[in-house]
């Protein structure tokens, strides 16, 4: 299963690993959480965006959304 995607810029193509995708019922937005597998001070760099129109990544706008992303990553409250 393909677990990566690419972002192409003027400097070239970079591959990212998808860590999570989810949808928030409240605002009906779709989120993508990903990493380029680089590290800062020994910590994995993780990024998050909303997906629009299936091909555009937009910045996360609110603290509430960032809080949610942390919860998803922590997997603490997930009910199967």
């Amino acid at each position: 299963m393909q677990n990566t995607f690419t972002i192409t810029t003027k400097d070239g193509e970079v591959e990212y690993e998808i860590l999570a995708t989810f949808k928030m019922e409240k605002n009906n937005k779709n989120y993508l959480v990903y990493t380029d597998n680089t590290y800062s001070d020994g910590k994995l760099n993780i990024y998050a965006s909303t997906i629009e129109q299936g091909e555009t990544l937009k910045d996360i706008e609110t603290d509430e959304e960032w809080e949610l992303i942390e919860k998803v990553l922590s997997k603490k409250y997930i009910k199967e």
């Binding site: 972002i7 192409t8 003027k10 910590k43 760099n45 960032w66």
Partner: peptide, 16 residues
């Protein structure tokens, strides 16, 4: 992990 709140790349041409 470090959750980066800034978008990782500038001048994006395409997202696949």
């Amino acid at each position: 992990y470090k959750l980066n709140k800034r978008y990782p790349r500038e001048n994006i041409v395409k997202v696949k």
